[in-house]
Nucleic acid binder design. Structure first.
Length: 833
RNA sequence: GCGGAGGUGGCGAAAUUGGCAGACGCACCAGCUUGAGGUGCUGGCGCCCUAAUCCGGCAUAGGGGUUCAAGUCCCCUCCUCCGCACCA
């Protein structure tokens, strides 16, 4: 054979070439209109925060989404595969402080850099629909939605606690509070201050958000469970205890009203509103209560609230149990949460672990009011928390089951006007005010005469001013921009002041995926008809860290938009996939651990195809992935093998275009069988199992087998039309995983048009079928040998083949074969005695 | 404490329904090739026993059970990771 200098596989040459071609063909990754007649498929990856650099978590997320999008394109779908930027947020202000760069400039620069990285990775996004949340043509719709919600009573103002650094004299975001101290002043304890804040009434949808989870079968159970816990529905009873010597009442919430005859004290949260009047005549307890509050605040800030010991202060006052008129002492205790239930409880030490612990510490009475239903049973030790018992020491209710007593006691309370059945939730309204510059301005105006006045729609957007000095001095940065603040009241025309708070960035990400469908609409957030076509999202892919906030806010926003008549879907996404983390040396990649792998480095060394394919090969997508650079090198070597295989056989494949194949035999048949098996396996995986790691492995096996038959391919024993089918299909199968190499080889084989628009290969079940199988033969469950039988052999033939085997014979002579189990196509087992 | 996911070679992992445990890749070893810049090809590679074997034994965190047959199903115990965490 003549010496031919093989051209090395060099992704640094191939990939930029195709990157440029794709950039010049904007229709390639563009969605078609609803009238295309194709099945629509909306695949969405969570949009990144433009920090400046992609990390491996992004690469993994987008490799999964891009493989799926490419597959769906090849399946002939009308695919929407967009990308955007969650571009508002605190890091831009931090960068401004540090480098004296305006947030907008910093952010847009980062976006440009990360977009280049994405394009270098060969990700197939439709950049014509790109959404950047910090630009007025996007955030004006945040403001528009805010006004619509305001009109529907879903926006309100309330006093609320914020983190306040006395040194900076400004509000801090939660992320800026480290162990209860200011991030810039390590010696300064952060205070809680009450400020008027804007809230969105997500609690108007609590029950629907909870019920909707049941129908989200395409979401991971883990995410649904986390949301259920977050919503935290709890059924119970509220009961009023009168305060002795006062007209005031203390309302408590309990899930165990059946134990109320065992209540031996009432416990208030330290921040409970009634505490000041209860403790008024009692200076020393007031001081102790303040100490409790202080201690708890510190514990909360340092994040170890759970470890704090239970402590309480007696107020010296008494409350009256409305069921039996009994006097019980009123205490203030640090384990009572002010913002759950009513912020007050009845303490039943006999039947609650926490109350028992508290009572034991302070010597409060412990009373048994629930006993086992079986009268002969020994009374269990207290606290006895089971609800399977019956009431004792409970007056007229003795002998009733817990469940029956609960119902009866609720009726009595309602009839007596001192209580009612009540459902509480942990979910609270969404505070969206941020005393920050780099966010969507809240479109409200404060007028001395007219009060709060919404900005009229025609004045939107309220544009974030460009020239704002970012300092650490005082309140919201916007309040120091007179041109922004000073305005006229839309109602009376008099002088007025703009709201200077901006919106939480979770607002931006709550509906961005709707905007993609109609991203350049200048008169509405989107066209309802277009959204109706594309929604719900067919597949949403992202990190599990967004399981609660982002995904619950998105669901809320969807329901609000539905009730505004803008959309008809109840939920944003029918399927959600949460990929695992990328770790290195057993730990999450982080700068402090020094185990960060840069995507740019990987692409520079091994190419985008190898980097992406490794991200899919190293672990199943839902599990954590341990990044091993040698593994990337391995995938790169594999792509090199494919490259050299194509260098030998692409001309053969190209030359065989249109040639009729003969019925395959021998090596050809074996190769085609493997080919069709591989096709079937990968097709199935895309349809749901998503084990892309084994898809890549299957392609490797296929290549190994073709390479193993190199001599037969070279000699022509495997005919040209077969070589053609092998090579064409191999490249098609590779296309979702290694798009650059696939595009290049597609061209080398003389194929016209984008491989992305070529139909996904079909697997012929007849060709994929084995004609012979190896059936393991076990004796008493232990493997003895393997027999070859026809693939369609029945139990009798397999049994005969097994018994005819020499090894089986030597092991069965002189013994009795008691039973033979044959699983056709699988195995056989002889029970020998 | 509650909820979830896991535990399989030196490493990443595979094994749709119970049916040959370890596919594929990495690392390593041997041979050939190449000749200085992450080369290519072929073969080997769970552990123990053995001079060696296609002999034999042991192996899916540990223990018990069901079954002709268990990584897979059931019970108990241990460990790791993630989420929530005094929610009355």
């Amino acid at each position: 054979m003549a010496e031919e200098k093989e051209v090395r596989y060099d992704p640094a040459v191939i990939e930029p070439k195709w990157q440029q071609r794709w950039a010049e063909d904007p229709a390639l990754y563009a969605a078609e209109p609803a009238t295309s007649g194709k099945r629509k498929y909306y695949v969405l990856e969570m949009l990144p925060y433009p920090s400046g650099q992609l990390h491996m978590g992004h690469v993994r997320n987008y490799s999964i989404g891009d493989a799926l999008a490419r597959h769906m394109w090849m399946r002939g779908c009308n695919v929407l595969h967009p990308m955007g930027w969650d571009a508002f947020g605190l890091p831009a202000e931090n960068a401004a402080l540090k480098n004296n760069t305006p947030p907008r400039e910093w952010t847009l620069g980062n976006i440009a850099a990360m977009k280049r990285q994405m394009q270098r990775l060969g990700l197939g996004y439709d950049w014509a629909t790109e959404v950047t949340t910090c630009l007025p043509d996007y955030y004006r719709w945040n403001q528009w939605f805010f006004l619509r919600m305001y009109e529907k009573g879903l926006v309100y103002r309330k006093q609320s606690k914020v983190n306040w650094c006395p040194e900076c004299a400004t509000v801090l975001a939660n992320e800026q509070v480290i162990d209860g101290r200011c991030w810039r002043h390590e010696d300064t304890i952060v205070e809680q201050r009450d400020l008027e804040q804007w809230f969105l009434r997500i609690t108007a949808y609590t029950q629907e958000l909870l019920d909707g989870l049941d129908a989200l079968a395409g979401w991971p159970e883990k995410v649904r469970t986390m949301q259920r816990n977050w919503i935290g529905r709890s059924e119970g009873t509220e009961v009023d205890f009168a305060v002795e010597g006062s007209a005031e009442k203390i309302r408590v919430f309990t899930t165990r009203v059946d134990t109320i005859f065992g209540a031996t004290s009432v416990q208030l949260a330290p921040e409970h509103a009634i505490v000041s009047s209860i403790a008024a005549g009692n200076p020393e307890s007031r001081a102790e209560i303040d100490a409790l509050i202080e201690e708890q605040k510190k514990a909360r800030e340092s994040g170890d609230l759970g470890d704090i010991a239970k402590r309480g202060v007696p107020t010296g006052r008494f409350a009256v149990n409305p069921y039996n008129g009994q006097r019980v002492p009123i205490w203030v205790a640090n384990y009572i949460l002010a913002d759950y239930g009513t912020g007050a409880i009845m303490s039943v030490p006999g039947h609650d672990e926490r109350d028992f612990e508290f009572a034991a510490k302070y010597g409060l009475e412990v009373r048994r009011v629930i006993a086992p239903a079986d009268p002969g049973a020994e009374a269990p030790a207290l606290p006895y928390t089971s609800e399977a018992g019956v009431l004792v020491n409970s007056g007229a209710y003795d002998g009733m089951s817990c469940a029956a007593a609960e119902k009866k006691l609720q009726q009595v309370a309602e009839a007596g006007g001192f209580g009612e059945a009540k459902v509480t939730y942990r979910l609270k309204d969404w505070g969206v005010s941020r005393q920050r510059y780099w966010g969507t301005p809240i479109p409200m105006i404060h007028c001395e005469r007219d009060g709060l006045v919404p900005v009229p729609d025609e004045q939107l957007p309220v544009v974030l001013p460009a020239q704002v000095e970012i300092t650490q001095q005082g309140g919201s940065p916007l309040s120091r921009v007179p041109e922004f603040v000073n305005t006229t009241c839309p109602r009376c025309g008099g002088a007025a002041r703009r709201e200077t708070d901006t919106m939480d960035t979770f607002v931006d990400s709550s509906w961005y995926f709707y905007r993609y469908t109609d991203a350049r609409n200048g008169s509405r957030p989107f066209d309802s008809g277009v959204v109706r076509y594309w929604f719900p999202i067919d597949q949403y892919i992202g990190g599990v860290e967004h399981a609660i906030l982002h995904l619950i806010y998105s669901r809320f926003w969807t329901k609000v938009m539905r009730d505004l008549g803008l959309i008809v879907n109840d939920e944003p996404a029918s399927r959600l996939f949460t990929q695992g983390m990328v770790i290195k040396d057993g730990a999450k990649m982080s700068k402090s651990k020094g185990n960060v792998v840069s995507p740019d480095d990987m692409v520079a060394r091994y190419g985008a195809d190898a980097t992406r394919m490794y991200a899919l090969f190293a672990a199943p997508p839902d599990r954590d992935l341990d990044w091993q650079e040698d593994g990337v090198a391995g995938v790169s070597r594999f792509l090199g093998r494919v490259w050299r295989l194509a260098a030998r056989y692409a001309p053969v494949a190209a030359g065989a275009r249109g040639q009729k194949p003969q019925p395959p035999t021998g090596t050809s048949l074996n190769l085609l069988r493997k080919l069709h098996q591989t096709t079937a396996k990968i097709t199935q995986d895309f349809e749901g199992r998503w084990h892309f790691n084994t898809c890549v492995a299957a392609i490797m096996e296929l290549v190994n087998e073709i390479q193993g038959a190199d001599a037969q391919l070279a000699s022509g024993e495997v005919a040209a039309p077969v070589v053609r089918e092998l090579m064409i299909t191999l490249v098609l199968l590779l296309a979702p995983f290694a798009p650059y190499l696939a595009a290049e080889l597609w061209e080398q084989m003389g194929e016209q048009g984008a491989i992305l628009r070529s139909p996904w290969p079909a697997s012929d079940p007849e060709l994929a079928k084995e004609d012979e199988l190896e059936i393991p033969v076990q004796i008493n469950g232990k493997l003895v040998t393997v027999v070859r039988v026809a693939a369609d052999a029945g139990p009798r033939e397999i049994e005969a083949a097994a018994l005819a085997d020499e090894k089986v014979k030597t092991r069965t002579t002189g013994r009795t074969v008691a039973k033979i189990i044959v699983v056709p196509g699988r195995t056989t087992n002889l029970v020998v005695k």
